[in-house]
Design a protein around this nucleic acid. Structure first.
Lengths: 216, 216
DNA sequence: TGTACATCAGTGAACGCGCGTTCACTGATGTAC
DNA sequence: TGTACATCAGTGAACGCGCGTTCACTGATGTAC
């Protein structure tokens, strides 16, 4: 495969016309890939189908992605990055003098919004793992980046005493925050609440309120 | 397709030898189907592969299942049934004079155990929906059956006042019970906790304790 | 400014594979007389 | 108990489809002199 020495550099600035074109096509491939994931899930991701949609022959795609797995990796990493940015922005969007619970509430709302607007992206990250595919190491780092604002929010109020054998309270609450929100979001995204006699948004809000109440 | 008039009857008793044989083969097909789901997920479910494993030609399977979708439906419904039985048994296993929170704690432990022993079964029910497949109506009824012991547990303590515009407290707590447990279980089952510096069982226990504390 | 050359995007044919499903059939098995 | 017949499990060939990926290639584009 072609080795691109600029792989990890910021490419846009010093790029010649060829490199620029390359990036454009890559972006278009990714767009179609997302559309496919959105319509039929990650397992349905198909290079040939993307090529057909783009009016291009399938082998041409191998100029841009070494394999189907590499494309899938790209999708997963970019979804992680996007969610990390959303979460960070939500945390940063709140005035710094506000108390931690305000910031965490903002993070919680941002997460749900993102998940509902990007159902398949959310499921790609947190749903059933794609069989035969294992996420790259970088994904773990991005998970940590998403989790960091939550952890720092709770750490601000709960200093880490950490009795041995027990979960550190800040970690415990951060995990609860995360798992509870995921519990509601994932069931909603997967469609398990449709037809049920309650409003998921209300349940979500109640859950957010309940866990933040422990901070007040 | 062959119409079997005994379809919904209890078949074992009055069955002739042919019917008995039929049920045996059906069971064997299902066994192999489960194994496939466990190894590669529901999307990988393949009639031809099952036939090969059984040392049989693929068309022969059509004597037992009208299509791949019917087989998948069977799997999903039986997984629902199994979980419903597990949950009901856990609730019933506790002496009736015990308080509701004892019963709910038992249900919670049973759910996690079942999920961890049947990861792919759990994901089949509550993970990413299989693209292009929509669950039969019966699934909704079985969901309700799983949910019933939880709801009755909370209703025992919280009579339904239900201010208008607000979630009924018993329903609210039942949903929280369910979504919180699902939040922890699903992330654990999907492998998102591997390598993290805490014990999922401990987190789960803490979550169960937290929600049941509101009953005490 | 013009030309020679290297680079590289994209093509079309092909590979081997697996899938769900249909069809006409064979042959064993149970059943009714 | 024996025979004729209906039932039905299972076969093998075939259909059309889609997949990821490799290969030798053509032709356009950018670059160095």
């Amino acid at each position: 495969m072609d080795v691109n020495p600029k792989e990890n550099a910021v490419v846009q600035e010093t790029a010649g016309p060829r490199e620029r074109y390359r990036q454009q096509v890559r972006a278009e491939v990714l767009r179609h890939a997302w559309q496919q994931v959105a319509e039929a899930g990650a397992t349905a991701l198909s290079l040939k189908a993307i090529a057909k949609q783009m009016g291009i022959s399938a082998p041409a795609l191998y100029r841009y992605f070494a394999s189907r797995d590499e494309l899938l990796t790209e999708l997963i990493l970019s979804a992680y990055r996007e969610l990390a940015e959303v979460v960070e922005a939500a945390g940063a969007g709140v005035e710094p003098e506000q108390i931690a619970s305000r910031r965490l509430a903002s993070v919680a709302q941002a997460m749900r919004r993102w998940a509902l607007y990007n159902r398949h992206r959310y499921l790609l990250l947190f749903g059933t793992p794609v069989p035969g595919y294992s996420a790259p190491a970088e994904a773990t780092a991005l998970s940590a980046r998403i989790f960091a604002p939550v952890l720092s929010g709770f750490s601000a109020t709960f200093p880490p005493p950490g009795r041995p054998g027990e979960l550190d309270p800040a970690l415990r609450r951060s995990l609860a925050f995360w798992t509870r929100l995921h519990g509601v979001i994932s069931l909603e995204v997967a469609g398990h609440f449709t037809g049920m006699p309650f409003d998921p948004a209300q349940l979500y809000a109640a859950e957010v309120h309940a866990i933040l109440a422990e901070l007040a």
